[in-house]
């Protein structure tokens, strides 16, 4: 018997097993860290066995592994990520404090990427093999080989240090310009390629010929009839990139010395702060899954055929 549920409810419920599996993998992988976690929790300072045992009990590490696992899942489900080893603060609060810089950078990068990528993608897609197309596609081809941290450093050197147009440090909006460009450039390359190929494919469809036969303007045909059909692959790319970025642009944050979630993850790994690593990875992957879900719901709005398709 199939239960008739609205399509969006089916999709929303569908992520529960994915979340469960993802969290389980994070838990399982982190169990593999060699060494006594209690020692790590205490920062490696030598302590008496009594203290060690107390600490072990306090962290619940004296329990059998399956109990620890169930406790972990229970806590995850209510958003309790535990306390960090080094700061002793709740991980959720530590993350919350770092969300803003990462989000700012994600939005800045997205903005640059969309502006550049959409413009180039449409220009290239409407005139395949024209000069905009040739230039954009060859740049994109070479661009995927560029190390983003190198580009970031070159931007700092040229625009920050030599020309002194923009500050390279600080919290202001102008300090966001170079890192946003660093992220945006890479986003724009992929986006332009996707928009181009989607647009080229769409423009040869029969319904575009129908639109021409109705006497519609080229602008209306491209902006309405073609883009609405060509837009799902680019939206997917943007959505997933955004999902990765709100978990922290690990590399770019490092280059520009921004205190976001990405640099927090690196520090947590280097200091072996397991709850913090665990919390950050859970946060990032959960954000990724949730944004994926939002994207699927969005497709249903953009393309009515998806709504009626059975999951």
């Amino acid at each position: 018997m199939t239960l008739r549920m609205p399509w969006f409810l089916r999709r929303i419920l569908g992520i529960v097993p994915t979340l469960f599996l993802t969290w389980s993998i994070v838990f399982g992988v982190l169990q593999l860290i060699p060494g006594d976690p209690v020692m790590l929790a205490l920062g490696g300072t030598p302590v008496s066995d009594e203290i060690l045992d107390n600490e072990r009990r306090r962290l619940g590490l004296d329990q059998p592994i399956y109990v620890q696992y169930l406790t972990f899942l229970k806590k995850m489900a209510v958003g309790d990520l535990g306390n960090g080893y080094s700061s002793k603060q709740p991980v959720s609060e530590m993350i919350a404090a770092r969300v803003r810089p990462s989000l700012e950078l994600a939005l800045g990068g997205l903005l640059v990427g969309i502006l550049l990528g959409v413009a180039l993608g449409i220009a290239a897609g409407l005139r395949p093999h024209g000069w905009v197309d040739t230039a954009t596609m060859s740049t994109a081809l070479v661009g995927v080989s560029l190390p983003s941290f190198w580009i970031g450093m070159l931007l700092i050197y040229v625009f920050g240090l030599q020309l002194e147009w923009v500050p390279i440090l600080g919290d202001g909006i102008d300090a966001l310009i170079l890192p946003s460009i660093t992220i945006g450039l890479f986003l724009a390359g992929g986006l332009a390629r996707l928009i181009r190929s989607a647009l080229i494919e769409t423009m040869t469809q029969d319904y575009i010929r129908t639109a021409h036969s109705k006497g519609l303007s080229t602008l209306r045909i491209v902006a309405k009839h073609a883009m609405r059909n060509a837009i799902i692959p680019p939206i997917t790319l943007l959505g997933l990139q955004f999902a990765v970025l709100i978990g922290g642009a690990v590399v770019t944050e490092r280059v520009f010395a921004r205190a976001g979630l990405g640099s927090m993850l690196i520090d947590a790994v280097l200091t072996k702060d397991i709850p913090l690593v665990q919390g950050l990875v859970v946060y990032t992957t959960t954000a990724y899954i949730v944004i994926n879900l939002l994207l699927e719901l969005l497709y249903g709005i953009v393309d009515p055929r998806i709504r009626s398709r059975r999951a």
């Binding site: 060699p34 993850l265 690593v277 992957t285």
Partner: peptide
């Protein structure tokens, strides 16, 4: 598929953590 849901760099960092 669940593994593919991890951003590549995050998965690599997680493994380095181990």
């Amino acid at each position: 598929d669940v593994m593919l849901g991890f951003p590549a760099i995050v998965l690599a960092i997680l493994i380095v953590a181990v």
